[in-house]
Every structure is written in structure tokens, then in C-alpha cells.
Amino acid sequence: MNEIIMQNILSPVVLFFLLGIIAAIFKSDLKFPNGLSEALSIYLLMAIGIKGGIELSHYEIHSVIAPVLGALLLGIIIPLITIFVLKLLKMDLKNSIGLAATYGSISIVTYGAAITFLDKNGTSYEGFMNALVVLMESPAILVSLLLLKIIESKQDVSVFPSQSMGIISRYSSLLDKEVLRESIFGKSILLLVGSLIIGLILGERAVPMVKPLFMDLYNSILILFLLNMGLIAGQRLPEVKKHGIKLLLFGLLMPLLFGSLGVMIGELVGLSLGGVTLMGVLAGSASYIAAPAALKTSVPEANPSIYLGLALGVTFPFNLIIGIPVYYELAKWIH
């Protein structure tokens, strides 16, 4: 285990991320132009989406139904567990919803780093895992916002996973158009879903055109993005510390709980070792793109320094350095 963790720490993507954190801590004048930062985000979203669509085109629908259902189940269960834990920690409602949406959704960059980790270890995984990234991006956001509407309507909030689908159906009318628009047609989900569909329609015909940019250069551009994420995460660390040790422990321990849950569900739906690992990574990660974009409009009272600070300043580096190898070892043990 120690060898795997050290191997992950000494990979270029992690080292450049740590370089960004160091630059932020020591207040270096290093910074990325806003336009470049936005362009890198768009690139990663398109790259993962189109690669997922191309890979998904190789599979029959019946072979991906179980993994898809497993991914959707995680998107429903994780926000419910998060709300329950935060209630025990006496967190206020709006910030609890913000963290439920953030931790229920996924980190595309953590997923990309996990793919690099698996490739380095020679571990194969199902090509349609990229498609599951798209599927796990929005359900948790919708579930979290639904829970907010339910709680605010003074209905029964003692929600368990087995009841969640019925409650979603019952209260779907509570969602307004703006919530739906931000959750489904926000930049992240639109690019992921759109690129996935394009890749699915074109299949292998798209490879000659997209390979030079979206496949060959992917890992190199991921390094640039992680350097920028390191700068942002380093700036967010003081904000997280202001909210006490309980919140810090939440950002460190919940990924392990959710990642373990993802590994178990990945095994139950019949994924390979690499697929089980990636399911754990997705479940254990936290969103800092799609969820914050939706929360900014739908739950403006939620404090971004809490949900974004934890996701970027604590959970993201934890997963990048320790979480990915832990999920891999857990997947090996279960598989």
C-alpha cells in the first residue's frame, strides 16, 4: 500500500498539484488567466465526454444496464447519507444541502487522475466508465435540491434510499424551471452529455479527428489544470480551517465511506478491477464545477467557502494523494 501511495504522490499530476498548493501558501504571484482556466475546464469536459461516447458505442445496451443503475443509485444514496451525517454535526440546512450536492456529484479531474493511475499500473477498465461520469454528475444535485424543497415544505425528511424514488416522483413538481435548467443544462453537464452523444453517434469514425487533441494531449493538459487547481485549493485551505475540526474530518472521512460504498456497488454490478476502482473514485470524489454552478443559483444562502473549500481544499488533494490508491487496494481485496 505504501509503495502505491508513494508512486501516486510522485506522479506528474500530483506533483504539479502540490506545486500549486505551495505557490498559494507562500503567496506566489503565479496565477492562470481566467480565460485559460475556463478553456482547460471545457477541454477536460469535452475530452472525457467524447471518449466515453466512443467507448460506449462498442457495447450493447444490455451489458451496461447494471453499471448505469449502480451509478444512479450512488447519486441518490450519497446525498441522503450526507444530510444525515451533517444533521448529527448540527450543520444548518442550506450548507448541508450544499455539501450534499457537492459530495453526491463527482470530480472529473479526480476521475482523470485515477485513469492515469490505472494506466500506469497496467490495470484495464471498462470503456463505458467515462459514460458513468456523465450519469453521476447531476442526479445528486437534483436529489439535494429536491430534499431542500421537501424540508422547506415541512414534509417528512426521514428519507431512506429505498424510499427516495417515490419521494422524488411525489415532489418533482416542487422544482422550478431555474433549478432544472442549472442542474441539467449547466455548462458541465451540457458539455459532458453533448460530447458523449456525439462520440456515441460517430463511434470510431470520430477517432482520426479527435485523437490528436482529446486523447494524445489529455494527460499533459490535465497537468496544467491540476497546477491551477493546486493554486485554488491552497487559497481555500484557510477558509476550511475557520469552520472547525469536525468539518475538516468530514472532508477526510466521508470520501473513504462513499468510496468504499462505490467499490462495493461496482463489484455487485460486475465491473472489472479497474471499473470497481473507478466506481469507488467517482463515489468518493466531490464536485467543484457542476454542483457549485447549480448551488450558486438555486441555494445562494449556502456558503461557497464551506462546500467549495472542503471539495477543493481537503477532499480533492486527499483523493489525489491517498484516496485513489486506497480505493484501488480495496477493490483488489473485494474483487
Rank of each mutant, 00 (worst) to 15 (best):
G234K: 08
G323H: 08
L320H: 06
I78D: 03
L330F: 15
Y327N: 11
L118W: 00
V263C: 12
S37T: 14
P317L: 11
V85E: 08
T110H: 12
I65R: 01
G52M: 02
T297P: 09
F32L: 13
K296S: 06
Y171H: 03
V109P: 06
R236G: 09
L248W: 02
V314Y: 08
G199S: 01
M215K: 05
F117Y: 06
I245F: 10
F17M: 06
M136V: 10
I9N: 05
P325H: 04
Y288P: 07
E126N: 04
L213I: 15
I197W: 01
S162C: 10
Y328T: 01
P139V: 05
K332F: 02
P325G: 10
F17L: 09
F250A: 13
I221A: 01
G313P: 02
L44A: 00
F160W: 15
K51W: 09
L320S: 12
L73D: 10
I289N: 06
S260W: 15
S28V: 08
A24L: 08
L248D: 03
L190A: 08
S28Q: 09
K27C: 08
P12L: 14
F225W: 13
L222C: 10
P304F: 00
H58Y: 12
I76P: 10
M215H: 06
L271D: 09
E3D: 04
V143L: 08
G230N: 08
G53A: 06
S169R: 15
I22L: 06
I168C: 11
I167A: 05
V326I: 14
L192R: 07
L282Q: 13
S153T: 03
A290I: 03
K241I: 15
S260G: 10
R170W: 00
